[in-house]
Write a protein that binds this DNA or RNA. Structure first.
Length: 657
RNA sequence: GCCUGGGUAGCUCAGCCGGUAGAGCAGCGCACUCGUAAUGCGCAGGUCAGGGGUUCGAGUCCCCUCCCAGGCUCCA
């Protein structure tokens, strides 16, 4: 008779169990519900199968499917079932890696004879997976030494490569599916059903019957181990959840993101388009989108002038020498449009950045310390030759306009300038209705960075200080800085929880040196200024895209291309409608009139779908009383008999800047 | 750049085994004059992304190019 074993639960209490008890046994003593929801256990912080015998004295937490860890186990187990199904349907298929990822899982395959998956195949695979799940096959763990594992996976070259990498202690071994083994140690495999076995660290759910709330989503090509020189495999993506409700909620979130897609809204609201005739990543702004953009740009100019910036302009093309001197041709050439040959071999480039021009403005004459900080601002249109596979709507384009500025200052002024810029950025973002931010601090990149360690440290510290001064949560992005300096960026969380990089602030000691910038100090000696690159929107186009997705097209009233529509109930109210229209238009409101050529309900519907903030209905009573019926965006019930003066005040207050 | 899947009317999409193009919405015309999310009838609208090939015949099959989507790689 061996002694009972004792384990500690997460709340600090202890339990005694018969010797050899597993986590599943423990869960059963804690409650039937818990046992039913359990998918794995955390033993001393290590995730293991529920069936694993518990060591005496361990701290044990039961992991349920509705936790992040539990969902990861669920998803990984579902990925195994996916591979099992594919192997059943395509005998001879090779399977590579199949980890859990955010919201789901994937598995990479190489099918016999170069076969490929189609959408119909997804349906077949899913049916086979449901069959496997219905059989409630147990997942069983086995441990093998490397030689046994190689023999077991003799026909699976990708698995053998993983075994070799893991047993060799290769640090580049794929962590997502690697067996948790050191060189020379045993490897674990998991079996379920009679035919399927996969190299895997685990843990897994006890049996396939625990799975089922999943959906296969799409197929995609993916390079083996992310290397574009290696074979490209067929990847199947899916999502899996702990319950039908959680799965449905996720699918609803995806549908909501689809409805908010700025490319779709851009078309529906007639804001912009990307005609094939123009080229990928190149935007055409229509009148309404043009209005929004004009308002954003006017607002940006006003804000920057108030903050002590000077407006400058620079050309779209320039000679090669300028970008050679700035270093862009060395470090950025891949993203530049090819040059034009002009004037007996002189090469001109489309500009991918504005900074060299602003530097030349600075350098156009001698500068005194009394002029610093000198802040030069430009809505600068730049062109970048983004790879064809990466352009995406307004958020990744080949031609864009940055709200770009360069601040030239002394080292002493640097900290104050950085903090001021961050405050300006946050104020601007709040004006657009964005409220949930954090700051990301990007440090020195590997390899390609210019400058001394000491400069990088000083610059990074200055940025960190500014970030903490504005009181925002800061996340470190190791090695994410530009080649010429570290970066602080403001990340925005949008209405459906995604985050986007918007404002960026970069410190630069390099360009002032390359261009030999100077100012004359109070000591009458020449000094080198520091340069700060910064953009608040990032690019106007991209920011508009983010804003459209965040607001689902309900731009703040001050940005709405049409702020109000006036709808006469019948033809004989047309005269009064025209007076309402001209009153609002005269006050600077963007207002349109919809004559009574179709039923009122149809006109209201159209304007609501257009997201017009104020839909104004005027009829007999209004005409007699000098009032309007007001439909406010987002409000179901209209408000009747609103005096025109009162409405005008409201519109001016909300709609004008 | 790579992989896969796409491109049919302004938009969303149907179009079977190759037999010569269809719907809804939008547009235009006429009628309707209406108090809160789609009035009715009619008309027009197409180089089926572009080019080449196979075929008696191609939206449909094959090849090339362009563009789009989702991934992969990249993202100063």
């Amino acid at each position: 008779m061996s002694k009972p074993l004792t384990v500690t639960l997460p709340d600090g209490s202890r339990r005694s169990l018969p010797p050899g008890s597993s986590a599943m046994d423990l869960a059963a003593t804690l409650g039937r519900r818990l046992a039913a929801d359990a998918v794995a256990a955390a033993v001393d912080g290590q995730l293991v199968d529920l069936s694993r015998p518990l060591p005496d004295g361990a701290t044990v937490a039961i992991v349920t499917a509705d936790s992040d860890e539990g969902r990861a186990v669920l998803r990984h187990s579902t990925a195994h079932v996916l591979a099992q199904a594919v192997c059943a349907l395509w005998p001879g298929a090779r399977y590579a890696l199949g980890p859990a990822i955010a919201d789901g899982f994937y598995y990479d395959f190489e099918l016999p004879d170069g076969a490929r998956f189609s959408d119909d195949d997804l349906v077949r695979i899913e049916a086979e997976m449901r069959r496997i799940i219905a059989e409630d096959q147990p997942f069983t763990r086995e441990e093998l030494d490397p030689e046994q594992a190689r023999a077991l996976f003799a026909d699976q070259p990708y698995k053998r490569e993983v075994i070799d990498a893991v047993t060799a202690g290769d640090p580049s071994a794929p962590p997502e599916a690697a067996a948790d083994a050191q060189a020379g140690e045993r490897l674990s495999v998991y079996r379920n059903g009679s035919a399927f076995v996969d190299l895997c660290r685990g843990p897994h759910v006890p049996s396939t019957g625990r799975l089922g709330h999943f959906a296969l989503q799409r197929v995609a090509g993916a390079y083996w181990r992310g290397d574009e020189h290696r074979p490209q495999l067929q990847r199947v993506y899916g999502t899996a959840w702990e319950s039908a409700e959680a799965l449905q909620a996720h699918l609803d979130r995806l549908a909501e993101a689809e409805r908010r897609d700025h490319r779709r809204l851009g078309q529906e609201l007639d804001l912009f388009s990307f005609p094939a005739e123009v080229g990928p990543g190149l935007v055409l702004f229509h009148p309404r989108g043009g209005t929004v953009r004009r308002l954003m740009e006017e607002d940006a100019r006003r804000t920057h002038e108030r903050a002590g910036y000077h407006m400058v302009y620079s050309p779209h093309v320039t000679k090669q020498d300028l970008f050679a001197r700035s270093g862009h041709l060395e470090t950025f050439a891949e993203s530049m449009y090819p040059p034009m040959e002009l004037d007996e071999g002189q090469r001109y480039y489309l500009k991918p950045m504005n900074c060299p021009f602003h530097i030349l403005v600075y350098r156009s004459r001698q500068r005194s310390y009394r002029e610093l900080p000198l802040r030069l601002f430009e809505l600068g249109t730049v062109y970048r030759y983004e790879k064809s596979g990466v352009v995406h709507g307004l958020t990744r384009v080949r031609g864009m306009t940055q709200d770009d500025a360069h601040v030239f200052c002394t080292r002493e002024q640097m900290a104050g300038e950085l903090e001021g810029i961050l405050r300006l950025a946050l104020g601007t973002l709040r004006d657009y209705g964005l409220a949930d931010f954090y700051v990301e601090l990007s440090t020195r990149p590997e390899g390609k960075a210019l400058g001394t360690d000491q400069e990088w440290e000083e610059a990074t510290a200055a940025l960190a200080a500014a970030a903490s001064a504005v009181g925002l949560e800061t996340v470190l992005d190791e090695g994410g800085g530009a080649f010429y300096g570290p970066k602080v960026s403001v990340q925005v969380r949008d209405a459906i929880g995604r985050h986007w990089q918007v404002s960026t602030v970069q410190l630069d000691f390099q360009l002032p040196r390359r261009f030999e910038l100077e100012y004359v100090g109070p000591d009458n000696a020449r000094h080198r200024p520091v340069m700060i690159h910064r953009a608040l929107f990032g690019s106007v186009e991209r920011f508009l895209g983010i804003l459209l997705e965040h607001t689902a097209g309900h731009l703040p009233t001050w940005l709405a291309p049409v702020q109000a529509a006036v709808l006469p109930v019948r033809d004989d109210h047309q005269g009064y409608a025209e007076r309402v229209h001209s009153t609002l238009a005269g006050a600077g409101i963007r207002v349109e009139l919809d004559p009574a050529t179709e039923p009122l309900g149809a006109r209201i519907r159209r304007r609501r779908l257009e997201r017009v903030p104020y839909v104004l209905v005027v009829g007999q009573q209004d005409q007699e009383a000098g009032t309007v019926g007001v439909n406010r965006r987002g409000v179901e019930q209209p408000e009747r008999d609103v005096p025109l003066d009162r409405l005008l005040d409201e519109l001016v207050e909300e709609g004008l800047r």
